[in-house]
Each structure stands twice: as C-alpha cells, then as structure tokens.
Amino acid sequence: MNRPTILRYISILYRFSQIHIAQQLKPHKIGSGQYPFIFSVCRNPGINQDGLSERLLIDKGTTAKAVKILEAGGFLRREQDPADRRVYRLYATPEGEKLGKTLESILPLWQELLWKGFSRQEKEQAYSLVQRMSENAKDFLTRSAEENSAPY
C-alpha cells in the first residue's frame, strides 16, 4: 500500500488553517503569518523579539519582519527596556488587544471544527502523539545544529 506520510496530512491541516485564519483576519488587514506574533505578545506582554522567536520557534529575521508589520499596522508598540537600553519590549496596542481577543475566539472554534466526531480519548491521544513528534523533530534539529555549530 502506497500510503501518504503523516507530514502530508499535517501540511494539509496547516494550509487549511492558514486559509481559514487569513479569511477571519481580512477585516484587520493582517495575514495569517502575523497572528502567532500578536497572539504571543498579548499573552506575554513585555516579551522581547528574541524571546518571541524562541517561544514560537521562528528565526529572528522572520520575527523582526512580523513585528515591523504589526507595529506599522498599529497592533504592537515597542518600549525600550530601562534596565538594558539595547532591548525593546513588545506590547499590544488597544487595537492589538482587540485583535488578540478576536484570535481567542477564532482559534478554539476552528479547533472544535477539526475535532468534530472525535471522542475525548481520541483528542487526547492525537494531541499527545503530535506533541511527541514535534518534540522529536525539535530535539533532532537542536542536536544537529549543536553538532554543526549552526542554527537550524
């Protein structure tokens, strides 16, 4: 049997999720690529860009671009850290807070749709298995990067 890999299905879930979220965020004039950043800043006020990159497992360049877009759109503001003037802390503006609340309603509804027909046990098992796969991938790439002295 020539069965597609699980990565194919994860990719499909990701693409459809991005399409749905982009449609929901259209009135806010941001793309689905920026939502993890504003969502994380709303949940972690005062986080810096390096912390945001680490939290989201996204490279610093991509984070810088997303922060710039969100700042230009009036969703984020930067404040210089008084203890270390080289560091800027990120905070959601009132418009960003509104967007964060919108996301707090969009994401659970989408997940609920994805879990349609699953028992509680199936949900927990699927979540656990995908989480373990993610940890395996992260561990492997982290080890590879350390061995090659290069960031992944």
Rank of each mutant, 00 (worst) to 15 (best):
Asn2Met: 13
Asn2Cys: 02
Ile6Ser: 11
Tyr9Leu: 10
Ser11Asp: 11
Tyr14Ile: 11
Phe16Asn: 11
Phe16Val: 05
Phe16Pro: 00
Phe16His: 13
Ser17Met: 09
Gln18Phe: 05
Gln18Lys: 13
Ile21His: 06
Gln23Val: 00
Pro27Met: 10
His28Thr: 02
His28Glu: 13
Arg43Phe: 01
Asn44Cys: 03
Asp50Ile: 04
Asp50Lys: 15
Leu52Lys: 02
Leu52Cys: 05
Ser53Phe: 06
Arg55Ser: 10
Leu56Cys: 04
Leu56Arg: 06
Leu56Trp: 04
Leu57Asp: 14
Leu57Cys: 11
Ile58His: 08
Asp59Gly: 13
Thr62Gln: 14
Thr62Phe: 04
Ala64Asn: 14
Lys65Gln: 12
Ile69Phe: 07
Leu70Lys: 04
Glu71Phe: 05
Gly74Arg: 08
Arg77Gly: 01
Arg77Gln: 09
Asp84His: 11
Arg85Trp: 10
Arg85Phe: 10
Val87Thr: 14
Val87Arg: 15
Tyr91Ser: 04
Thr93Glu: 08
Gly96Phe: 02
Glu97Cys: 03
Gly100Cys: 15
Gly100Lys: 03
Lys101Ile: 03
Glu104Asp: 14
Ser105Asp: 10
Ile106Trp: 07
Pro108Tyr: 08
Pro108Thr: 06
Glu112Met: 10
Leu113Glu: 13
Leu114Asn: 02
Trp115His: 08
Gly117Ile: 11
Phe118Met: 14
Gln125Tyr: 06
Ser128Pro: 04
Leu129Tyr: 06
Arg132Ala: 12
Met133His: 10
Ala137Glu: 09
Lys138Gln: 12
Lys138Thr: 14
Asp139Met: 11
Asp139Ser: 11
Phe140Gln: 07
Thr142Pro: 00
Ser144Pro: 00
Ser149Ala: 12
Pro151Thr: 09
Tyr152Cys: 04
Tyr152Pro: 05
